[in-house]
Design a binder for these strands. Structure first.
Lengths: 196, 196
DNA sequence: ATATAATGTGAGCAACTAATCACATGAGGC
DNA sequence: GCCTCATGTGATTAGTTGCTCACATTATAT
């Protein structure tokens, strides 16, 4: 029998285990049995701490949302130059994705946005504010004449996030010939030439 | 009882039915039962024409690959100016996605690249040549001085495809406030400012 | 016209999934 | 020390999924 721990701790462990399952074998493989095995506990014990898969999905979405999306907002609030902020946002996002492939898989999983509409709504809202955050930084860059005056902040932000997302996707699929950090450096170098 | 048709025709019908299921309810819902219902035949009859889900996935991948990815190559081979080619590739890709949401869902589905490695390999190869095709057009644009000389063709191509993919993703998730064609026009307008 | 092979189908099987339940056990208040 | 309740678990259930099979039907070659 397992050592007994408080629900609060077990919840964290279970969410972490779930994220590992997603990273390793995809959202499709995110079964209660797989989570239980990854967390080293019985299936029934999962239900001691979560009412069901829905609640678990919500917890996972909250964890990802707060740890990843909040990141950009924090960086954007710092007092440096717009271009430096963008660069920091870009590379920290890439780093998070590289270290934890389960995150992009979960966020853009159809199991989430087709199977758990409330979770999807919350994630969509977070993506929206992420775009908004980056847009504001780009707008500041244009105002301070670091970036080309004719570019549109919102569309440029979407282009930048698309670049990140596509990189994550290519990594997941395995079509990335070089390392993701090398690839992302090349992409960022080119993006700078596009926006300046 | 159904009217009897040749395997060749039935295969096409089944693939089409499968694509409709994916577009409507996602790859997760792509069960034999769902396909059979959408195609208006019994489950057992599916197995008369496909050995199993693997073969069906391969057929779906081939259909999508040849009808979508081949599109770009055709456009690129025409005799117009590079920028016009890029624009045509961009908007026809968006159009295909808009008309058939099952396509991007399937291509980037984890059920494919985690559950059917051989299909994933074939799709990855097609994506690779798609990137290559666009890169070549961009390189031509640079050479003919339509595009900025300092941009890197490959990375710019990846950025453009990321923009498309991210748009498809946002449409699928439902975070696209405006119509996808309106949104894509805005994105293209801005992209032109970035690359020229 | 008849034979034959291809096509179509309801019934059902084994494996898997989410969830429940009765029962065991141990941590913490007293 | 012991009581109590939160925590942990094996067994089980109802539902789903991919797939098979015996049997029905029809296109088609001869």
């Amino acid at each position: 029998m397992q050592v007994k721990k408080s629900t609060r701790i077990r919840k964290e462990e279970i969410v972490q285990a779930a994220l590992e399952v997603v990273g390793g074998k995809g959202v499709r493989a995110l079964t209660i049995a797989a989570i239980a095995e990854s967390a080293g506990m019985s299936e029934a014990n999962i239900y001691r701490h979560f009412s069901g898969k829905d609640e678990l999905f919500s917890a996972l979405a909250d964890f990802i949302g707060s740890s990843v999306m909040g990141n950009a907002a924090t960086i954007a609030a710092e007092g440096r130059k717009p271009i430096e902020k963008l660069e920091t946002i870009f590379f920290s996002h890439i780093k998070i994705i590289a270290e934890n492939p389960g995150i992009p898989r979960f966020i853009f999983s159809e199991d989430v946005f087709l199977g758990h509409p409330d979770v999807a709504k919350s994630l969509a809202s977070r993506i929206g504010s992420y775009v908004e955050t980056v847009s504001v930084v780009i707008a500041a860059g244009v105002r301070e004449e670091e970036l080309k005056p004719e570019i549109s902040p919102r569309e440029t932000a979407l282009t930048m996030l698309g670049m990140i997302q596509f990189t994550a996707l290519r990594q997941t699929i395995g079509v990335l010939n070089s390392d993701i950090t090398v690839e992302s450096r090349k992409l960022w170098g080119n993006f700078l030439k596009l926006i300046c």
